[in-house]
Design a protein around this nucleic acid. Sequence first.
RNA 1: GGGUGCUUAGCUCAGUUGGAAGAGCGCUAGCCUUACAAGCUGGAUGUCGGCGGUUCGAACCCGUCAGCACCCACCA
Length: 938
Amino acid sequence: MELAKSFEPSEIEKRWYPGWEERGFFKAGLDPDNPDAFCILLPPPNVTGTLHMGHGFNQTIMDTLTRYYRMRGDNTLWQPGTDHAGIATQIVVERQLEAQGISRLALGREKFLEKVWEWKEYSGNTITRQMRRLGTSPDWSRERFTMDAGLSETVTETFVRLYDEGLIYRGKRLVNWDPVLHTAVSDLEVVSEEEDGFMWHIRYPLSDDSDAPAALTVATTRPETMLGDVAVMVHPEDARYRALIGKKVQLPLTGREIPIIADDYVDPEFGTGCVKVTPAHDFNDHAVGLRHKLPFVSILTLDAKISDAAPEKYRGMDRFDARKAIVADLDALGLLAGVEKHKLKIPRSDRTGVVIEPMLTDQWFVATTKPSSDGKSISEKALECVASGEIRFFPAAWVSTYNQWLNNIQDWCISRQLWWGHLIPAWYGDDGAVYVARNEAEARARAEKAGYTGALTRETDVLDTWYSSALWPFSTLDWTPDYPARSNTALDLYLPSTVLVTGFDIIFFWVARMIMMTKHLTGKIPFKHVYVHGLIRDAEGQKMSKSKGNVLDPIDLIDGIDLEELVKKRTSGLLNPKHAGEIEKRTRKEFSAGIPAFGTDALRFTFLSLASPGRDIKFDLHRCEGYRNFCNKLWNASRFALMNVPDASDLQAGTEEITGSASEPALADRWIVSALQRTVAEMARHYADYRFDLLAHTLYEFVWNEFCDWYLEMVKVQIQEGTPEEARATRRCLVDTLETILRLAHPLLPFITEELWQVVAPLAGRKTRDSIMLCDYPAAQPEKIDPASEERVRRLKDLCYACRNLRGEMKLSPAQKVPLILRGDDLADFVPYLKALAKLSEVRIVETMPDDTNAPIAIVGETRLMLKIMVDLAAETARLSKEIARINDEIAKAKAKLANASFVARAPAHIVAQEETRLAEFAATAEKFRAQLARLAP
RNA sequence: GGGUGCUUAGCUCAGUUGGAAGAGCGCUAGCCUUACAAGCUGGAUGUCGGCGGUUCGAACCCGUCAGCACCCACCA
């Protein structure tokens, strides 16, 4: 079979993937007798659109691990699926409808959800199609969606259990409220950025002004909330105000009178030392309100407009309009004591970007710090799993981040006033009593038991999307309520899974919550290892986002994309079309020629190479190009092998020669086998440590720098100059090594290795021809490591480098072959290699170097080399002098070290010995150069 | 306010119990040498952020300063 002259990935990828999938190669290993289980849960991508570079990165790592352990013979499951992503998906669909002039509210809940399901179908398919293009090998037959029937049942069941256990509760609490989405969001969904604002100083007149001063001045960044003030507080020890504690002030604009209270939360140094207390609209004030049993006055509606609890004048005003009006009115009353610029952190909704409003609403919570039936809270248990080492983080540094968060965790607000998501399984009686149950019938039964027989109304709130995500480790494995009494093979084998591969950005959102929920509900940890990787950023280190217009679609790196198409893609569908011009300009500058097609393998290799622990990745297109070239190198090395190995029968004989006792394998063969074994062992270490960067580097280094640069060149010599038997033995070794390399590389480069393996494996006499995926992964065979041949080849390489260097210095054309004279021991078998590798016309080994010539010389250890050419005497003299000077530097350094008594006395013996050897070698070499220099002198 | 990470060649980054500074890309000189010009061969390039300390010896350990990035909490 003839291979194309260069590697063309696209056709190969399209050909292999469907076959792998159809023949069931990705299917989970469910052999109960094989105790070696390997399982990865795919962090389910959101069905909000398409996959981005971060997914490509994340999935490449998982696929490499999965293919590796699968080839090693483990019972392997990569569990795929997608996430309904409540808020995010609802927003996407809402915006699409808006673009068509349809509003969600006008459409109604039922119709709207139909639209979302349509979108889910479309987006989910896009995502799984993209994953297939990346070559991923999850068990697609087990694909799950967080709102599948089974998973939804798990959501309901766990909710009811946690409620019955007292770990889920409902209550009126101050929560982060998104006034645009009309829903509560969790602490994690609020992002605070520092913004420019103002600090207003407002006078609150004292009710009883018999004592000076006549008013207290409070400082606030949100003057509109004064309408909901219920107190003014000062520090109990603050001498300025101590006498006023317990007295009252007039709350301007409202006619209300509110008390002056003392609380040591107040920092007397900040502002005026007087703080207005608005328990219904501020988290700290809320706590104060509870402590002092103050009333809560809500002056905002869920739209963030002024409510009916406020003076009539302001009712219905938007919160920011009200702010202006109130400041103006206070000023008019002479109660505005001053305004100053002030930087403050503004909390905004992660999804909509609007300013979050703390709002008193009825919500559902998971109690994270309350002891459960076994006496420990779920956060405590999650901390223990990691502290005990049962769950390990890679890199381990993330443990402290994890601990810090769990040690300060608040109860988790899990209710969302949205439509898209799991409905909370609760029913209300007309009296407001709540009945949490698995279904309406059960709710009715529970109500009756409580003495209520009236109508029941289902809760309309849905659950935070992360609630179902937290159950993913067991919900996807067909967990049932009677677990563990009844289990199944998948649960037995794959809970806990082996490793979770994820970005640090969702350690709190997802990782910690999976651990809390899985441990509490199943008694098992969800996974043993957590491999935390960085985020993919653009070439400037900026986070990739649609609005910045710097996103890359992994598929575009695989297939390539022309500039116009890329510009179109980046500028269409922008939330803020004003950015389009800037985005277009930058895109045209950065990708003036578009993006060439690199192929999946090259992209995967790039991701892996960049996966250094503990840092984000500035994605570098040039790296991708370099690894595309690497694929091409592998391709052409295989072409070379195929051109030299006509058929398998030839190699059958070669096998006997290599294994028989007729003669020892050739140096090159012994060496490459040895080097291969070291590579296999090293790669196994990198897999175990999750060092994908080093894994890729090790493979690259071996394939290019050893196998291609040296071994193949030596093979050429052996095939040309050896006996037919020797040539066959070498061909055999060549094919065996290549075949092993392909298996070694398969988890990283699935497509090219499969394509090449199909033609190489028959020559190597491999039995199975179905797929490289089904082969054994190469296991290290330390007994094949041969230090002697490694040392020999190292010396040969050094001689080659010396010759090539001389040639370079002498400015010889690569085409010009010249004679070499050598003096030293054990050189005879190097001759043919040196001739070929250093472009020599002949190699002569002599007892004494000729001294009547001004030819250039080099020295490698004990060996002297001379290129038998005439050179300019002055130039050669200069070259030698320079060389001697360089060596003298080294000698001086070594001598200084050895002259240091402390060094000799305290450094380990082998270090001292090494230094002595170096010194001796340098000295000998320098001496030889000096002798040569003397000969040159007229 | 608390915490974390980073700073090594022009760029992006490795550097594995402290023991002669590395890779890819780029640059440069020359080569279509029958696997590969997506290639081959040679070459140039670094006070390893600054300053102290520990040590016979520090890119690596400790302290400190500076710059960059991020996370958590948030003083109205």
